[in-house]
């Protein structure tokens, strides 16, 4: 999903920076508050950030014959919400832009918006909706993580389509072309990512259910039911 350095016209770079900035600013504010008031959640925040590090470094082959990577943002979106996730995602994107020439500084705003904001927002709301209709927790986590991944690539396709409308067919034709490159490639990877994050979520429930309850991710009844089912 990385839009490479210089591959967006300047005004689109500025536009996406402007859109991403409020999310990052509020995310940093929330991060400061978390550090002051809920220090015992920090290990889980570190683990979610680490997950983005690991999963976004893995380039995996997909059915379209090209390689892409998962995003790993679902876990943190579910536990800490989209704003904190946007800060974690930006750190990873900055690392890749600086050391790997993967993505870029000029396109950082656009890449932060797709991977660290749009994807996590989708994941967060899918998990919340799943919880509201009492969907099985692991199915909800799977869907949230898989769609956080997939939506990221749909948004990247959209960003490129807006900046480079096709000569014939305009934005929609060029969106279709980019979606084939990004979004279709991503479907199998999103499924794997969803499964892996659901599995990790089980281990987190087993380790620190108290924190998940306090972060309002799970109710005490849900935790009790899940722990019984794995006993």
């Amino acid at each position: 999903m990385h839009i490479m350095e210089g591959f967006l016209p300047l005004y689109w770079c500025v536009f996406w920076f402007a859109v991403s900035l409020p999310f990052i600013a509020y995310g940093i504010y929330l991060l400061n508050r978390l550090v002051r008031e809920q220090r015992d959640t920090l290990p889980l925040l570190a683990v979610s950030g680490a997950f983005i590090f690991v999963l976004s470094s893995l380039k995996m082959p997909s059915v379209t014959g090209s390689c892409s990577h998962p995003t790993g943002t679902g876990l943190s979106a579910i536990m800490f919400g989209p704003f904190l996730t946007s800060v974690l995602g930006m750190i990873v994107l900055l690392y890749q832009a600086l050391f790997l020439a993967h993505g870029g500084l000029s396109t950082l705003g656009a890449n932060v918006f797709s991977m660290a904001i749009a994807g996590p927002i989708a994941g967060y709301w899918i998990y919340r909706a799943g919880k509201a209709v009492r969907l099985n927790t692991f199915v909800a986590v799977f869907l949230a993580a898989a769609f956080a991944d997939l939506i990221t690539y749909v948004v990247t396709s959209l960003q490129l389509a807006l900046a480079f409308p096709a000569a014939t067919g305009g934005i929609s034709a060029s969106f279709a072309a980019f979606a084939v490159i990004f979004a279709i490639t991503q479907i199998p990877l999103a499924i794997i990512e969803g499964v892996i994050i659901a599995l990790t979520f089980k281990y987190i429930i087993q380790s620190r259910p108290d924190i998940l309850i306090r972060l309002n991710v799970l109710t005490p009844e849900q935790v009790k039911k899940i722990q019984e089912s794995f006993a």
């Binding site: 490479m4 591959f7 000569a167 990004f182």
Partner: peptide
């Protein structure tokens, strides 16, 4: 990489990256 494939499509429109 899918990233490169997208870059190729963009370059085929005659666009050259400015940075």
């Amino acid at each position: 990489g899918a990233d490169n494939n997208a870059a190729k499509v963009i370059e085929s429109t005659g666009y050259t990256p400015w940075m």
